[in-house]
């Protein structure tokens, strides 16, 4: 039901509210931040927020934006987490000398960066073609791709962790324009760019139409296959970028980097209100989902929670956040019911 937002005349108040409903996580984040400020004096410092919360979640942020765009269009890409490893691995092995784990090609490091994005381009195009031209199920295609790419990463680097990175691959992790880490700048540009794209660009709005009802969208003249293919390519390119950032943060590239990350990516998207059935949800919601997870993870490191209980508390806090957000949601439903009742004055509260 993509039409939810086309409010009927006379429901102006509700329309304004509907812009806010993707932000139900904001009060939850506010509560957690308030608790956090009591837990550790360093929590609310700008350094902690910029470097340890936003910096540490920049990779997740970019992946969530990429995945959310696909989910809104009614597709999935599970293989993004493998691209996070494969793209930088290929980029690095082409550049570094054989004694550092490379292939001995020793190409220019900027060509290495180009190769990194080239991997994203090829993987995304391959996924996209299988899904659009061969009409294969995105879930199965990208799951197979996840395994294949993981294997390619292992093969390409002979399973090794490469630590002698070319300078271009370390640049992001060690640069701070205006005192703000480079990865935060990049994540912000990606997030804001994607939000503007879906809101104001025709193709961006078509994504919702495709996810809502692909056949109807096609009938309305939307080039469904072309847009879907483009989205797969865009998502893989963003995953390559995320891989570059991750590599520069951990100052190495390892065969299993990014492993299991896709679960957190889906969690953040869904927590933020992206509907897994496609066609619904706003990017701003998914972005607040990332912020929520980032703040909780930061607080768990700062707090004195015994290590054995960290995972349990993490799960409990996420669940409690969902319950808080849901209660804010039911408040919205009441408002909606009141709004529905208003125009003709007869509808009961239900």
């Amino acid at each position: 039901m993509a039409g939810n937002e086309q409010a009927a005349p006379g429901r102006r108040g509700l329309r304004a509210w509907s812009g806010v409903r993707e932000l139900v996580l904001l009060p939850v984040i506010a509560v957690i931040v308030a608790i956090g400020s009591q837990i550790h004096p360093a929590f609310l410092t700008s350094y902690n927020l910029l470097f340890n919360v936003l910096g540490a979640s920049s990779v997740l942020m970019i992946l969530v934006v990429a995945e959310s765009l696909l989910i809104i269009a009614g597709k999935f890409d599970l293989s993004l987490q493998s691209t996070v490893a494969l793209a930088p691995m290929i980029g690095v092995v082409l550049v570094v000398p054989a004694h550092a784990g490379g292939w001995g090609t020793e190409i220019n490091q900027y060509l290495g960066l180009a190769a990194l994005f080239g991997v994203g381009l090829i993987v995304g195009a391959f996924n996209g073609l299988l899904v659009t031209k061969l009409r294969l199920n995105a879930f199965i295609v990208t799951l197979a791709m996840l395994i294949l790419l993981q294997g390619l990463t292992m093969g390409a680097g002979s399973g090794r962790t490469i630590t002698k990175l070319p300078p271009a691959f370390q640049y992001i992790g060690n640069t701070m324009p205006l005192g703000i880490p480079m990865e935060v700048w990049i994540a912000a540009i990606v997030a804001i760019g994607a939000m503007l794209f879906v809101r104001f660009h025709t193709v961006g709005r078509e994504i919702y139409a495709i996810g809502g009802n692909a056949e109807a969208a096609r009938a309305a003249g939307v080039k469904v296959n072309r847009v879907t293919l483009g989205l797969f390519v865009l998502a893989s390119l963003l995953a390559s970028l995320a891989g570059l950032i991750l590599t520069s943060r951990i100052a190495s590239v390892s065969a299993n980097q990014g492993a299991d990350m896709i679960f957190t990516v889906f969690a953040a998207s869904v927590i933020g209100g992206i509907d897994l059935n496609g066609g619904k949800g706003r990017l701003i919601g998914a972005i607040t989902g990332v912020c929520l997870i980032a703040v909780i993870q930061n607080l768990l490191v700062l707090s004195e929670v015994p290590s054995f209980w960290v995972t349990a508390i993490y799960g409990a806090v996420i669940m409690a956040s969902m319950m808080l957000a849901a209660s804010a949601g039911s408040f919205r439903q009441i408002l909606q019911a009141v709004g529905n009742a208003r125009p003709d004055g007869s509808k009961p509260l239900s």
């Binding site: 550790h40 470097f51 910096g55 991750l246 930061n298």
Partner: peptide
Amino acid sequence: SKPGEWIEDKATTAAQTVLST
């Protein structure tokens, strides 16, 4: 003590957070 789960990224974030605060 902070759990790193043998994962590079987790350990880096924990080190970054604790050492800076």
